[in-house]
Amino acid sequence: MKETKNLMNAALAGVLALGLGAIADQAAAAKPGFEKCAGVVKSGMNDCGTSLHACAGQATADNNAEEWIYVPAGTCGKIAGSSLKEAAPKES
């Protein structure tokens, strides 16, 4: 029980030692991670969903669901791995 108490106090002492205001700046340099959309929204498809609404009409084909026979044709071809073989649908 005393050990837990010591550990808890050590953990909080560590947090308090970080000091006010230092957190955000340090975190920025801490670790690369994957970072994006820092205020800059590019044109094109990926604008982080900030322009979902418009009062203009969208034109598309009106295919019946039954006619749907496409195969994926994007960058998924570049993803490889042993688990794909298990998941792949049978060739027909």
């Binding site: 498809m45 969903g49 322009s51 969208q58 034109a59 598309t60 009106d62 994926p72 994007g74």
Partner: peptide, 25 residues
């Protein structure tokens, strides 16, 4: 067609990587 377009366009904006992996069609 317009409503289908509105929904698919919205989903494409919310799921751009999914779209890129599969291709637009």
């Amino acid at each position: 067609r317009a409503v289908t377009g509105t929904f698919t366009r919205a989903l494409g904006q919310l799921y751009p990587v999914t779209m890129r992996l599969l291709g637009r069609e």
